[in-house]
Design a binder for these strands. Structure first.
Ligand SMILES: [Mn+2]
Ligand SMILES: [Mn+2]
Ligand SMILES: [Mn+2]
Ligand SMILES: [Mn+2]
Lengths: 230, 230
DNA sequence: ATGATATGTTAGATTAATCGAACAATCAAG
DNA sequence: CTTGATTGTTCGATTAATCTAACATATCAT
């Protein structure tokens, strides 16, 4: 028996108005949400019944602790959806805002957290950001998939076979569980670039560079790490 | 005065049931949507009033032309959202289906078309797909941004300065409008890979390869095309 | 202090969406 | 053709969300 769309919008609005200016008046809410004051009175009554807001006759409107928690969760969904629509899809501001506020009532916390992660990834992964902001935006307008999208064919070999000075991207760490765990812990995880710094006379051990750190690997270990040459 | 969420779901359901099996019975709809038959009767009455469905007492339910058009638009939104939630975000099937059917009532055609484009781009751009299916999925679980995300530093030079055998990615075509238009038309657009096949004795013209085709460019033209070396 | 203006409340009504219970038509076997 | 199961309809009721119109209280300026 969670709140309906409308009530969620009321607490969200109270929450935001509270942040913008100290005291929240019923009229402010009505103005913001474009409804009649009588409608707000009704909504506040119901929020009060649910222990989410406090409203004394002719007084200010406040949210309870529980109300604030719920409101901030609603708002988080709003802002997450807004960012996605606006930053990734390039939807115009007005539409993105309106739709975010419609959609926010229907995304589960699982979906929200995935979407948040997606945005985080989008913001931190230069490569993705670039692809979206340049090639995708271009695709939106001209419908052309640029050849930069094609995967260059790649040679998959094991790390052991790399020569001094060569570099590749780790694709798989396929060793036994125990060794594997150690390697992963050292930063040898899929997606990372590795470069061979030096190889000992007998090919064992080899000195590699990953994330700027030097690491020494035994033949056995290097053998089961698959890398991709670009 | 568009349809409410509920009515949109009714036409969507009728549309889908119609595709699955010839005649659609009121009971089928009730079962599918988990509502009472009396509720369906009511919904059908309203759909009929809006000229979207036809339902004669004790008979089959059918959609009008207008009904089919509307229904298929609703369903398109459904499927688009579902694909995004499922394929890109990796939301589980049950959740993705449920949420797609909730969200579908609130996305504008502008947003829908952008999302469709995004999926199309996702499916055709190997690089993006790979980034999402490998690095993003990994990020979801372990929260690590892989170094593959970092933009390698790139040298920007003009196409003219490339030597035989070298290749780069077009970043900008900065010539005068008329020349520019011709170059773009020939496929020299941002995001495309170019390779220098041969350069004439005096450096003019140069023979380049783009999308597998040979193209001959004059110095003037090559001079104002910026490329990026990976 | 006394209006005018702004703010808030009440009452009564509407609309979409839903339900349950009782009733009615249709259909498939026997 | 009867009859029990399936299918469909009606009716009355509820709930959330909204409105209008009339009324009430508060606040601010002169
Ligand atoms: Mn909202
Ligand atoms: Mn919102
Ligand atoms: Mn739906
Ligand atoms: Mn749907």
């Amino acid at each position: 028996m969670s709140l309906g769309m409308a009530l969620e919008d009321y607490i969200e609005t109270i929450y935001l108005l509270g942040g913008e200016k100290g005291a929240v008046r019923l009229t402010d809410i009505a103005r913001r949400l474009n409804v009649r004051k009588s409608t707000v009175v009704d909504a506040l009554k119901r929020l009060q019944e649910q222990g989410l807001a406090i409203h004394e006759r002719y007084g200010d409107v406040m949210l309870t602790q529980k109300g604030v928690e719920l409101a901030s969760r609603v708002y988080e969904r709003h802002i997450t959806l807004y960012r996605f629509l606006s930053d990734v899809l390039g939807v115009d501001d007005v539409t993105a805002s309106r739709e975010a506020c419609d959609l926010e009532h229907f995304v589960s916390s699982n979906t929200t957290s995935r979407l948040k992660k997606f945005l985080e990834f989008f913001n931190q992964c230069e490569k993705l950001k670039d692809l979206i902001n340049t090639e995708f935006k271009e695709f939106l307008v001209y419908g052309r998939i640029p050849s930069i999208c094609e995967k260059k064919e790649v040679k998959m070999i094991t790390l052991k076979e790399l020569k001094t000075g060569e570099e590749g991207v780790i694709k798989k760490v396929g060793c036994d569980a125990s060794i594997r765990a150690r390697l992963l812990a050292m930063g040898l995880v899929p997606g990372e670039r590795v470069k061979v710094a030096k190889i000992a006379p007998m090919g064992d051990p080899m000195d590699i560079i990953i994330k700027g750190y030097h690491l020494s690997l035994r033949k056995d270990e290097a053998k089961c790490i698959e890398v991709e040459l670009e």
